[in-house]
Design a protein around this nucleic acid. Structure first.
Length: 893
DNA sequence: GAAGAGTTCGTTTTT
DNA sequence: CGAACTCTTC
């Protein structure tokens, strides 16, 4: 067998002599020094002369203190927009520069890949060099995967274990619940997954679950948890929670190993410490236990992931955990104007249990936070759309007043406005000679001097919502007015069906114990393997104590399968064997030498590249053909996605490496494809900033969310309040909060009350607008439809009840707004119109169906029609589902 | 095994 | 209301 000759690839070996040479000689273009080599320079410089510490000069005193306190525990309390990443990266540079640590001796953990990436880039920029030398800068999960692959056998796993995502997790739990004879309806797998996750977040293994907790899930939670863990082990798989938990277990059981890592990781840095859960906290405490050189950065006011197991307590308790810790507060904000900061501070100060920070800024002028109420959710969306158009075209007052537009040059500004015009000469100030290349709405065509209005770019604008269903109204509206937008946080590439199918093939190749993947592909594409055949295979596997692939082999050999199933499975097995023999296997992971951890990976030699193999698999399995033969409108898109998938493989050494990437990196950045307004949730916006931010839907029950308050009481409310704080502090120049008096909730109209957070806004920093405030005399309220359609019980009157106590309600603006909303009419209680009129059809009549489109009635049997649709073939359906074609215009679709 | 009928249940989400 | 799921029927 050819692959007996293993190649050992040293991924990042460290050669001291080379480092010395590099430090001594000026570097040439080809041979640039690595980070470790630079660190050596630092070490030498520390001995023989001053290292270059110019990165310290741009830090403010607080940042500088946080950067220069290198030894011992440090807690950096960094408010929103206070330059925390800057401080963190400068600190890493300083550690290297002062010769305190080699790049591989620094453990730096973040929560998201994005944050990790940014940190790598910025450290690299500071050090003027590539990031190769920092192997332990990454997310908690990616660092844990590396550790766990090295020591998998200590928790009875093989180092090529699979990482299951939530989907696999649920499917597995479903199987277990059914096996226990529990009604999956009453005790859904989702819920069990939630319970198990919360146990894992708190580092509770099945054996450690105490009395009361055992009652979870109908008293069978613990047993199912144990069964689940056992099943994961036979599948040689882990879930996300396990990545941390297994490593914690290993460290707890093997003090000698822990000690080794404590020595290896001389300095630890943690980003977003307020988001750590118990397992992560234990993990950090174990690793920092020796030297206590740990620097945690966080903001208790931005802790918004409590519902996912994050413990604000971790950050509140830091000084107790690490006595003598240095606490540094970063309070100078470089992002927002004073009005925005004051509004955010006023809200967050209503929370108890804070470490307390006061953000301040030099940016004293700017726009007040705007507050506006609307009649209903659709109107809110319409207003926001019009505001954005006004800003974008430079018509709005804000766009004109704006001091520091982000757009860099008049050319860009003009190109944005005209989509193609060019500035040919800059005359003076904002007057430019312009050569218009085609008809422009903005100005007459031709060459001439024009004043370019200042405008707001669409990608400077974000709409941040509490719940994703709020996005719908904005999407609908923006679609109809043709405003480009981008939704962040939709369904992700790697969660699509075709991608998961393809990856299931790769998974079986890389890790034959992955039964979940095998189940997924055994009849995809169709091989005539139904439930019965699968059952036979499962029985064969179980009774022989082998995985499903081997079980299938036995089932075929013993003649347990018949007909199509038999030949189908046999063919699949032969294919799998062939593909497996072509796969580049990773054979060893992680080798250490005496006093350093050398990250290395060993591979078998490849006969064909993993990319060719992937194409071969998709092709020979018939999977590609399956979609080619598919007539559904999604099919071409899916084939396109498969091509994308193969392309993505190029960046990886082998299939296994790719699978790991996919499991850990759910890339959500859907590229910068043009200038668009961003629509996203408040959670998704953490860490981001935008010049202009809209915060719609500030209504009781929606924000703060009812469920949050029901489930977690005051704690929940305080987390919602932190979310409000996060939202406001995303804005740099202009922040607009809005709410609607009426909103459709699950199809029912509901009168809404303004959010209590609105009561907490400081009137001095808020500009209360009337609904038709900024532009034109035509109020939105009356535009285009009769508001008398709404009935009784005006919710604006409910606002009145609270008007006395809240700051903002005493402003003239609020009173004007209130007048308008009440004059416009009062909301009507919901009326559901049962419009199920019986319609008689005749043969040959043209009809319309919501899904199938237009067609012709071919035959009638009582209620049942046979309709030949223009584009969807002939169908039999009940008369109630189609309309006469001439009435179809009434049906929006 | 696919189409269509009926049912249920509705936050936030990274890894 | 509408997506996602299951159940029914051919």
């Amino acid at each position: 067998m050819a692959w007996l000759f293993y190649i050992l690839l040293l991924m990042s070996s460290y050669d001291e002599d080379e480092a010395f040479e590099a430090a001594a000689a000026p570097t040439s273009g080809q041979h640039r020094p690595s980070l470790s080599q630079l660190a050596m320079q630092g070490a030498r410089a520390a001995t023989f002369g001053a290292p270059d510490t110019s990165y310290l000069d741009s830090l403010n005193p607080a940042q500088r203190e946080a950067v220069e306190t290198l030894d011992g525990p440090v807690l950096m309390l960094a408010g929103a927009g206070t330059g925390k990443t800057k401080a963190l990266t400068a600190r890493i540079a300083h550690l290297l520069n002062t010769g305190r640590a080699q790049p591989r001796e620094i453990l730096a953990v973040t929560f998201t890949n994005k944050a990790a990436r940014e940190m790598k880039e910025r450290v690299a920029a500071l050090m003027g060099q590539d990031i190769e030398g920092m192997p332990w800068l990454g997310t908690f999960h990616s660092v844990c995967v590396k550790l766990l692959r090295r020591h998998a056998e200590l928790v009875d796993l093989k180092s090529n274990f699979t990482i299951l995502d939530t989907d696999d997790q649920i499917r597995l739990l479903k199987q277990l619940i059914n096996a226990e004879g529990i009604d999956e309806k009453r005790w859904p797998a989702r819920q069990l997954a939630g319970v198990i996750d919360s146990w894992k977040n708190r580092a509770l293994t099945p054996g450690r679950i105490s009395g009361g907790e055992g009652e979870e899930f109908n008293g069978r939670g613990v047993r199912l948890y144990a069964a689940y863990q056992a099943r994961l082990q036979t599948l040689n798989a882990v879930d996300f929670g396990d990545l941390l938990l297994h490593v914690v277990t290993i460290f707890q059981k093997h003090p000698d190993l822990l000690e080794q890592y404590q020595r290896w990781f001389r300095y630890i840095l943690v980003d977003e410490y307020q988001d750590t859960n118990v397992a992560q906290y234990l993990w950090l405490r174990l690793l920092a236990g020796g030297h206590k050189n740990i620097c945690c950065v966080g903001d208790d006011d931005q802790s918004i992931y409590g519902w996912r197991g994050a413990e604000v307590g971790n950050i509140l308790r830091f000084e107790k955990d690490f006595p003598g810790a240095k606490v540094v507060r970063l309070e100078r904000n470089y992002r927002s104007t004073e009005h925005i900061l004051k509004a955010a501070s006023a809200i967050i100060s209503c929370n108890k249990d804070r470490l307390g920070k006061d953000l301040w800024t030099d940016e004293t002028d700017g726009e007040k936070v705007r507050l506006i109420g609307h009649w209903d959710g659709e109107e809110e969306a319409r207003w926001v759309g019009e505001e954005i158009e006004a800003m974008h075209s430079g018509v709005s007052g804000f766009a004109k007043r704006r001091k520091n537009p982000r757009s860099k040059t008049p050319d860009q500004e003009f190109e944005r406005l005209t989509k193609g015009g060019r500035v040919s000469e800059h005359v003076a100030g904002d007057i430019h000679q312009i050569n218009l290349q085609r008809e422009q709405a903005l100005s007459p065509a031709g060459v001439g001097n024009y004043k370019i209005p200042q405008s707001v770019g669409l990608d400077e604008i974000a709409i941040l919502v509490r719940a994703s269903h709020q996005m719908r109204a904005f999407e609908d509206r923006f679609l109809s007015i043709g405003l480009p937008y981008r939704v962040i946080g939709g369904p992700r590439f790697y969660e699509r069906m075709e991608i998961r199918d393809a990856m299931a093939y790769f998974r079986v190749i890389c890790q034959p114990d992955d039964d979940l993947a095998f189940e997924r592909i055994i009849n995809t594409p169709k091989r005539g393997v139904g439930d019965k055949a699968l059952q036979e295979i499962q029985i064969a596997a179980r009774s022989n104590g082998v995985n499903l692939v081997e079980g299938a082999r036995i089932a075929v050999a013993d003649g347990l399968l018949k007909g199509k199933a038999k030949s189908g499975v046999a063919q699949l097995l032969a294919d799998l064997d062939r593909w497996t023999s072509l796969n580049v296997q990773q054979i060893r992971y992680g080798v250490e030498d005496e006093d350093a951890l050398v990250e290395d990976v060993a591979y078998e030699p490849a006969e064909i590249s993993h990319i060719e193999l992937a194409e071969k698999i998709l092709d020979e399995s018939g999977y590609t053909k399956m979609w080619q033969n598919d007539k559904s409108p999604e099919a071409p898109g899916r084939l396109e996605n498969l091509k994308e998938l193969v392309k993505a493989l190029e960046q990886f050494e082998n299939l296994a490496g790719f699978l790991e990437h996919v499991a850990l990196i759910m890339d959500n950045d859907s590229g910068n494809d043009g200038e668009k307004v961003t629509i996203m949730t408040l959670h998704g916006a953490k860490g981001l900033e935008f010049p202009v931010v809209f915060l719609p839907g500030w209504e009781e029950g929606l924000f703060p969310s009812q469920r949050s308050m029901d489930e977690s009481g005051t704690k929940g409310l305080e987390e919602e309040r932190r979310l409000a704080y996060v939202g406001i502090t995303r804005a740099e120049e202009l922040c607009t909060i809005s709410f609607a008096a009426n909103r459709r909730v699950y199809g029912q109209w509901q009168a809404q009350m303004a959010s209590r957070f609105i009561d907490e806004l400081p009137a001095d920093h808020v500009d209360v607008m009337t609904p038709n405030g900024l532009y034109g005399a035509q109020g939105n309220m009356g535009a285009g439809r009769s508001l008398d359609d709404y009935g009784q019980d005006s919710s604006p009157s409910r606002f009145q009840e609270r008007a006395a106590k809240a700051d903002v309600y005493n402003s003239p603006g609020w009173k004007r707004m209130q007048q308008r909303t009440s004059r416009a009419g009062t909301p009507r209680s919901p009326v559901t119109i049962e419009a199920k009129a019986t319609v008689a059809f005749t043969e040959g009549e043209r009809v319309f169906h919501k899904k199938f489109g237009y067609g012709e009635v071919m035959a009638i049997e009582g209620e049942n029609l046979t309709v030949e649709f223009d584009h969807s073939g002939t169908k039999k359906l009940k008369a109630g589902f189609v309309l006469p074609a001439d009435q179809a215009g009434d049906v929006p679709f």
